[in-house]
Design a protein around this nucleic acid. Structure first.
Length: 287
DNA sequence: CGACTCCAATAGTAGCATCG
DNA sequence: CGATGCTACTATTGGAGTCG
């Protein structure tokens, strides 16, 4: 297949964003995008009418293979699994167009929901909602019947419904996080309790490599106890910044001049419902 | 230990209701 | 009318338990 420089520039961010949403991993997504382009160059077919759909098909199938084989691996993962954070505008860095659709769908909370879906459901949901393919095209991509594609989509939709249409407003969420930090630094427990939901859950992903809670922490008292515990132990050269991670405000923590962890949040009704701490060094980009 | 059965959960299909 | 999404039914799968 012939792919011009322009087409490559156009399709690369699209494919990356599809793969990243499917896999929750920046590294794996980048690999798969490269593989897909290499595979496409080697194709002899010159009469492919819809290159975009064809590339998505190749990519989707690779992702599905990887998900199906990774499913067993994920079972051996120590503790909660969080998606690999996407810091700064990695996508924008090589994307001038409007191709990056629906940034809300890139929040850590959303990606974590995706984990509850089967590989097929993920693929269909993304192709439909984010990339606006028709059911006929989707059926062609995943090699199933059109009716079935619709069914898979509606099932997927049901599972993710709880996160649909909610306030993923960056400014509002940032102000909540700022107040949270402020209250935390002054150890103002009553304000903290106003900012977090009564069924708050904290997922801390250390990947079995660094110390992290091996199961989710539930309830405000337990979560605050854990956070207070962390703050007591931090070294002097600790500092943090509030940055855009997955297009949502997050707290990025540095220790000894290196990136130590990232705190992401799922905020609903102006309260923190879920906290995701990513400490697994394999998921933190090196600066 | 492998082979077998059974059951529950999931995937797939047919057909119908709704809406523009 | 076609596109969509739903319900209700059927088929398939995978895992737990059991037996030889």
């Amino acid at each position: 297949m012939q792919i011009s420089k322009e087409e490559y520039q156009l399709f690369k961010p699209l494919l990356f964003s599809l793969a990243y949403r499917m896999l929750g991993s920046v590294v794996e997504a980048e690999d798969i995008v490269q593989e897909t382009f290499l595979g496409a160059y080697q194709l002899n077919e010159e009469n492919i009418k819809n290159k975009k759909a064809y590339l998505c098909k190749m990519l989707t199938n690779r992702c599905l293979d990887m998900l199906k084989s990774a499913r067993s691996r994920r079972e051996y993962y120590v503790g909660p699994w969080n998606p690999e954070p996407l810091i700064l505008d990695k996508l924008h860095a090589f994307d001038p167009s409007e191709m990056i659709i629906q940034k809300e769908g890139l929040s850590i909370a959303y990606l974590r929901i995706m984990e509850h879906l089967t590989p097929d459901e993920r693929a269909v949901l993304l192709l439909r909602e984010v990339f606006a393919f028709s059911y006929v095209e989707i059926a062609n991509i995943i090699e199933k019947r059109e009716e079935n594609a619709r069914k898979i989509f509606s099932r997927a939709k049901q599972k993710v419904s709880r996160i649909e249409g909610e306030s993923l407003n960056y400014k509002i969420n940032k102000s909540i996080i700022d107040r949270f930090i402020q209250a935390f630094q002054t150890q103002n427990t009553s304000v903290l309790l106003e900012l977090i939901s009564e069924n708050v859950t904290l997922y801390s992903d250390g990947g079995g490599i660094v110390n992290a809670a091996t199961r989710p922490i539930v309830s405000p008292s337990n979560v605050l106890a854990l956070l207070y515990g962390i703050i007591k132990k931090v070294p002097k050269d600790f500092y943090f910044e509030v940055k855009s991670v997955n297009y949502q405000p997050a707290i990025v923590i540095f220790m000894n001049e290196t990136l130590h962890s990232i705190f992401s949040f799922y905020i609903y009704n102006e309260r923190i419902n879920e906290i995701y701490i990513t400490m697994n060094p394999e998921k933190l980009p090196i600066h």
